[in-house]
C-alpha cells in the first residue's frame, strides 16, 4: 500500500497528464460526423503507434550479448513501425477520397430535392 502511494507521489506529473488527456481525448472528437468514424479510428490507430518509441529505447539499451532483449526488441521495433507507417498510410488513403469535396459540410446535408 505504502509503495503504491509513494509511486503515485513520484509520478504525480504523469498522473496529471493522464487525467487531463482523458478529457482532451473525449473533447477533441466529441463532434465527429459518422462519415469520419472509420478514418478517425484509423488515425487514432496510427497515433498509438508511439509505442514504437518504447521499442526503440528497449532496443537501444539492450546489451550486445543479451539475445532475449535484442530479438524481442527488434521484433517490437518492426511491429511498432508497421503500426505507425501502415496506420498513417491507410488513413491517408481513406481520406484521399474526400479530397476536393472538403468544402462541403457533411454534417448539414440539405435533404432538398434537385
Amino acid at each position: 500500500m505504502e509503495s503504491i502511494l509513494s509511486w503515485i507521489a513520484d509520478n504525480q506529473q504523469m498522473i496529471y497528464i493522464v487525467i487531463l488527456m482523458i478529457f482532451v481525448g473525449i473533447e477533441v472528437i466529441g463532434h465527429v460526423p459518422s462519415v469520419l468514424h472509420t478514418p478517425l479510428m484509423s488515425g487514432a490507430n496510427a497515433i498509438h503507434g508511439v509505442v514504437i518509441i518504447g521499442a526503440i529505447i528497449v532496443m537501444g539499451k539492450a546489451e550486445a550479448h543479451n539475445y532475449v532483449a535484442l530479438i524481442l526488441g527488434f521484433l517490437a521495433v518492426v511491429l511498432g513501425t508497421l503500426n505507425v507507417v501502415g496506420g498513417f498510410v491507410v488513413t491517408d488513403r481513406m481520406l484521399e477520397m474526400f479530397k476536393g469535396k472538403g468544402k462541403k459540410n457533411v454534417k448539414s446535408q440539405d435533404p432538398g430535392t434537385k
Binding site: N11, M14, I17, V18, M21, I22, F23, V24, G25, I26, V28, I29, G30, V32, H37, L40, M41, A44, N45, I47, H48, G49, V50, V51, I53, G54, I57
Partner: peptide, 28 residues
C-alpha cells in the same frame, strides 16, 4: 498499453499519445 510504456520510461509523448487514443477510442 502504449501509455503504460510512457509510465515505464517516464516518456511524456508515449503517455499523451496513448491516453489520448485510449480516451478518444473509448468515446468513438
Amino acid at each position: 498499453a502504449a501509455a503504460c510504456g510512457g509510465f515505464l520510461y517516464n516518456n511524456k509523448v508515449m503517455l499523451t499519445g496513448g491516453i489520448l487514443v485510449g480516451a478518444a477510442g473509448t468515446l468513438l
